[in-house]
Design a binder for these strands. Structure first.
Lengths: 224, 224
DNA sequence: CGACTAGTTGAGGTTGCTCAAAAATAGTGG
DNA sequence: CCACTATTTTTGAGCAACCTCAACTAGTCG
């Protein structure tokens, strides 16, 4: 389902008619093949990217080749924080993707003229901080099995936001990407998948993964 | 050095004169004793808090009693993300603290009237996301020793922002707090401190810690 | 002085990592 | 379409880092 333009999905919220129109005119559409880099950490961020179609992974790299995947970006979301001066993460296409680029400074002006839009960006930031913190909570306090399960459940939930999801949830990203997202090694991901399958919590096929009902263990939930 | 009012330190940046004045009139000063709770996760966030004096720790709790400390807040910073509807973290006084509370809705209006102030909040958010991501990078990819060292170096740097720092850097927080911040156990913190001391990288006393020159191992740094 | 809390130290266990190799999958060009 | 290669994923064996449980020390405060 091709989503022609990013703005419709801006922050997952509807903006005002007027602002929306101006916004659309600013955007320039571009495509990337799987594995292609869209932008890199520490580059100047003159363009603000929104994702129209496909799957993108945002990551930070360490000298020794290790990566930390910060986020998998789905259509309708920004690629990283809008309005940063310098990119704090690299963006890489996972599938074939289509992005919408906006000149940062013009977009900024647009935003300064509209408190409503500013509020949208602030809300986006709030969600982003919250997401990152939940992720951090997971990485620091939860076992490999729970982490992977939480990832699968969260992934399905996010896909469900975009439209109805089939029983079999696709996993377009590589094991390596999941590993780098969850702070584990690909081998461990593989073993953990096997272990979850043995416990009848999931079923894996070439098409993706089926989450087979089993009530989630709540060890990782919060309480006062 | 008592900092009478939070606004002077707003986001670490100077706001415009007019806005600053209105801002100051809104604030209400309050004090908390060490270990006291300032607000809790999932409470409604009708008040936006800025820290005037002391040290506060922001954390998330898990059912089983484990905690994840998300941030140590120093004077001049917000307690959590401003303008959230519901607190995503709990705030607890580490030392005696003095906070400045603003009614969220009025502050929001003030912000909507001033694009400049909105920009400040957005910039704060950008920094906040970046900080959290760096933290995540550390937790997921780096050894206990490197994590603790990175924490100490970062802590000293943040103190240095507030004013000149003596050779001996104070550590007002407990081992437990550091452990929960770094995703480790207090015992491991203790052992790691000992190990770092043996390697002559630090010296610990009751007053705090001395970072003894040693060039930092760059295993945790980033590169293209 | 005694009770309490925080911090340190010790012994042993587990989880997830490392290294290595086999199996499956995806590309590529004839 | 098929053979051939490159890449990804799975599986196995051994290991190290950090955790757990427990005892001990050192402050603190009534």
């Amino acid at each position: 389902m091709p989503r022609a333009l990013f703005p419709e999905l801006f922050c997952g919220t509807r903006a005002s008619q007027g602002a929306l129109r101006k916004f659309q005119r600013l955007g320039v559409q571009r495509s990337f093949a799987p594995r292609q880099s869209i932008f890199s950490e520490r580059e100047s961020a003159a363009t603000v990217f929104g994702l129209s179609e496909g799957l993108v992974c945002l990551h930070k790299s360490l000298r020794d080749g290790r990566r930390q995947v910060m986020k998998f970006v789905l259509p309708g979301e920004f690629l990283g924080m809008p309005f940063v001066e310098i990119h704090k993460v690299s963006a890489q296409a996972v599938t074939a993707v289509s992005v919408c680029g906006f000149p940062r400074d013009e977009l900024k002006q647009l935003m300064e003229a509209s408190p409503r839009m500013a509020q949208l960006v602030i809300n986006f930031s709030i969600r982003e901080v919250d997401l990152t913190q939940e992720q951090l909570l997971l990485l620091a306090n939860v076992s490999a099995e729970q982490r992977l399960m939480a990832f699968l459940v969260g992934w399905r939930a996010r896909l469900a936001h975009l439209g109805p999801v089939a029983k079999t949830v696709p996993l377009p990203m590589r094991r390596r990407d999941i590993a780098d997202f969850l702070g584990m090694k690909p081998e461990t991901i593989s073993r953990t998948f096997a272990s979850l399958e043995q416990k009848k919590l999931i079923r894996i096929g070439p098409e993706g993964v089926v989450l087979t009902g089993g009530r989630k263990k709540s060890t990782s939930s919060k309480a006062a």
